[in-house]
């Protein structure tokens, strides 16, 4: 029992930290998750995180919330999912409640806007690094490289919703790899 509670608590804390430092949308969360879940705690493999990240974008809800619930469920069942969920949203709730009361001071604070310019610049590098690190494990052959390039172009041009890009990739994977029989 104590051990279980400890597991939930650790999940809560790890996702609290991730939630507190996820600026600039769900994609910026990937490097933080990789660092905490794969490198620091060894709770999952890098490829598994990518699979979860893809699933999280394919179901309703915010990517960050979905990813947290997925990982929590996978590690510690239902209550783990709930612990990760509360962890990832608590920093947002607390910060927004504070800002909602002091909005006018917040808006014109020059120090905050300078610090935030620094964070914004770092987030660009962070997401680019996540793409490179993910690519090392996920792109195993020329087919994968082509799929990644097509997904990049489709996403930047915005011609079809992201979910459809993922579904297309899944269909392509089934057609290509299953026929080749390369994947166990």
């Amino acid at each position: 029992m104590i051990q279980k509670l400890h597991g939930y608590w650790k999940l809560f804390i790890v996702f609290f930290r991730i939630g507190l430092f996820t600026f600039g949308g769900g994609f910026a969360m990937l490097p933080l998750i990789e660092n905490e879940i794969v490198d620091v705690h060894g709770w999952a493999e890098r490829e598994e995180i990518l699979d979860i990240f893809a699933l999280a974008q394919s179901v309703p809800g915010a990517i960050a919330v979905n990813t947290a619930v997925f990982i929590g469920l996978r590690l510690h069942g239902f209550w783990g999912g709930l612990a990760a969920l509360f962890g990832v949203i608590t920093p947002s709730i607390a910060i927004i409640l504070i800002i909602a009361q002091l909005f006018s001071q917040f808006q014109s604070n020059l120090h905050l806007s300078r610090a935030f310019s620094g964070v914004k610049a770092a987030v660009v590098g962070l997401i680019a690094a996540a793409a490179l690190r993910a690519g090392r494990g996920a792109i195993i052959d020329r087919f994968g490289l082509v799929v990644a390039a097509v997904a990049f172009v489709l996403s930047v041009s915005g011609v079809i919703p992201v979910v459809w890009v993922i579904i297309l990739g899944g269909c392509g994977g089934i057609l290509y790899y299953k026929r080749k029989g390369e994947i166990r």
């Binding site: 990518l50 893809a54 899944g170 994977g173």
Partner: peptide
């Protein structure tokens, strides 16, 4: 097939 898509999506982001 989906993993490379995620790489492309993160690159696009």
């Amino acid at each position: 097939g989906i993993r490379p898509v995620v790489v492309g999506l993160v690159g696009a982001a």
